[in-house]
């Protein structure tokens, strides 16, 4: 979260935001309709939320287990969908300010996809793969 801290510090040093001091980004991330004067900070929240979500979906898909192309498509839909709902309905940010919904959707998506694949493969291999391969 170094980037987060850095941006907050910079923001504080510039004094760009006037008025009451803002709570930490952690608290604001879980609070509905928070104020995000620093766009980078919100994009960081989206980035890390996406990484955590990718890992969580990977674990879930591995435990069930979900297999095949359907699981990959489902990951993309769930990942993009949840974050989209978070941005537009929970935080109610104006997506146009961030360059449109696409910019928010692709923020950290590939890294999250790689993280998802790794956790999915690990859990699936550990729990459901054929034991003869373990020899």
């Amino acid at each position: 979260m170094a980037t987060k801290t850095k941006t907050t510090e910079k923001h504080g040093a510039n004094g760009a935001h006037k008025g009451p001091a803002l709570e930490s980004a952690w608290i604001r991330a879980f609070k509905s309709e928070s104020e995000w004067p620093d766009k980078d900070e919100f994009l960081d929240v989206v980035y890390w939320a996406r990484q955590l979500l990718g890992i969580a979906i990977g674990v879930l898909w591995g435990l069930v287990p979900l297999k095949g192309f359907v699981a990959l498509v489902l990951f993309a839909l769930v990942n993009a969908g949840i974050l989209y709902v978070y941005c537009t309905s929970f935080q109610k940010v104006d997506e146009e300010e961030y360059g449109g919904a696409w910019e928010l959707t692709k923020e950290g998506f590939m890294t999250s996809f790689a993280g998802f694949l790794v956790t999915w493969i690990i859990i699936y291999t550990g729990l459901h793969s054929d034991t003869r391969l373990g020899l």
């Binding site: 170094a2 980037t3 850095k6 980035y47 990484q51 590939m110 890294t111 790794v118």
Partner: peptide, 24 residues
């Protein structure tokens, strides 16, 4: 598997350590 791990771990490490280039 190594490439997949690297894709996810390397970028996140860079971001945590603050070495990733800024978005601007």
């Amino acid at each position: 598997l190594y490439i997949l791990c690297t894709m996810s771990i390397r970028q996140n490490t860079q971001k945590i350590l603050g070495f990733a280039p800024s978005r601007t």
